[in-house]
Design a binder for these strands. Structure first.
Lengths: 209, 209
DNA sequence: CCGTAACCGGAGTCCTGAGTCCGTTTCGTG
DNA sequence: CACGAAACGGACTCAGGACTCCGGTTACGG
């Protein structure tokens, strides 16, 4: 069992991943594998040899994107202004969401996968840190929780995507409204208790409880 | 050219529409037509005779749902408390969105269709009336516009749907945050000018400008 | 009660897209 | 350079789902 890939195989692997990232980002999860093969300048056989299933390819791509989001959170954690840090992270993250149709279409089938599940948890942890700091600085209402952040980002992204082609950047307006909804002085208590860790995990993994 | 349907045909038409509404609401736009035929207790031929295309069936179903939303808006317009009217309409409308996967998956391919486009305009008009009243009463910030309401509802619905199976009703929490974002005293001006009528129409109809 | 036109059901067709297979080509080592 | 192993490509197979077609059935006017 050799672990080193032949030079051409290595080259093609990179090409395939790049092409998959682009095509899935543009066309979404239902993009046909042949499109990816074509963009990579490769036969479909080459793709399926490395990724036995289209789904495996999707997992690889989504993993990459999750890591990018984690990096963005880390970058925001460098900031010394906690309120601005959270806001700028959410803007960056939303932009990343919007530029990746596939990410916005992903559900428990992907987010619950073995390699990804753990990355999501790391990401949510960083979001929680950003949030807590902003709350401690009195910049954000205290009744929101870390688990609310990914949901709100998805809300901006999924609705923003409907407009994006016709009105690029429109999502920033709606992120603005949501950020205003996170201000410290709440008009009235939120109508539902926060998501528990268990509930979030169930949604992420596609279970019913 | 007879306009009156035979009795059994009429009966089946109703069954088909009911089944389609249910199946599309549960499974979304990609539900196979055979599922609808089965639920209606009818052969697929019977469906395609009345609706030459699955798409035609979808249009009929989405039209119905749009009318229901218009009715909900009308009901809210009866209220004497403008702020509560807008809030309760948004809650009702969001619940209707959430209970209909197909509606949440619909895009310009459906919303831009001839019969539906006009209904959407009527609906947005009513939303505008609810909003204006709430703004006049000083209950809602003045820089939001009628066209923002459907977008925000879609934001709640699309993100809420991700959670709905595992955590029913979670969407209410996020609607709450958004409603707080609509309070009169804005923290900072919204980062993007409102959607123009032209921009909204382009997004609704799937054009690029 | 009969005749016929409208209607019904679902097996069959066609198409799209995932995943396989194998003859051909390329890499890299002796 | 030669040769075996690894990798390649894309025609092929297979499954699922939209839509068709026609032999059988049902409604309803006379």
């Amino acid at each position: 069992m050799t672990t080193a890939l032949r030079a051409d195989a290595q080259r093609n692997l990179v090409r395939v991943l790049d092409a998959a990232r682009e095509v899935f980002a543009e066309q979404g999860i239902d993009a046909p594998v042949t499109d990816i093969a074509e963009r990579a300048g490769v036969g479909v056989g080459t793709i399926f040899r490395r990724f036995p299933t289209k789904d495996d390819l999707l997992v690889a791509v989504v993993e990459q994107r999750t890591v990018q989001l984690i990096d963005a959170a880390d970058a925001a954690l460098e900031s010394t202004d906690p309120g601005a840090a959270l806001r700028s992270f959410m803007e960056t993250a939303a932009a990343m969401h919007i530029s990746d149709v596939c990410w916005c279409e992903a559900g428990s089938d992907l987010f619950g996968r073995d390699g990804i599940r753990e990355l999501i948890d790391v990401l949510v942890g960083k979001m929680g840190e950003l949030l807590t700091r902003a709350q401690t600085a009195g910049q954000v209402r205290s009744d929101v929780r870390a688990l609310d952040i990914p949901v709100l980002l998805m809300a901006v992204a999924k609705s923003g995507l409907m407009l994006e082609e016709a009105v690029p950047g429109a999502w920033k307006r709606y992120l603005g409204i949501i950020l205003d909804g996170l201000r410290p002085e709440a008009a009235r208590p939120l109508p539902r208790r926060p998501l528990s860790r268990r509930e979030f995990a169930a949604a992420r993994d596609g279970q019913t409880a």
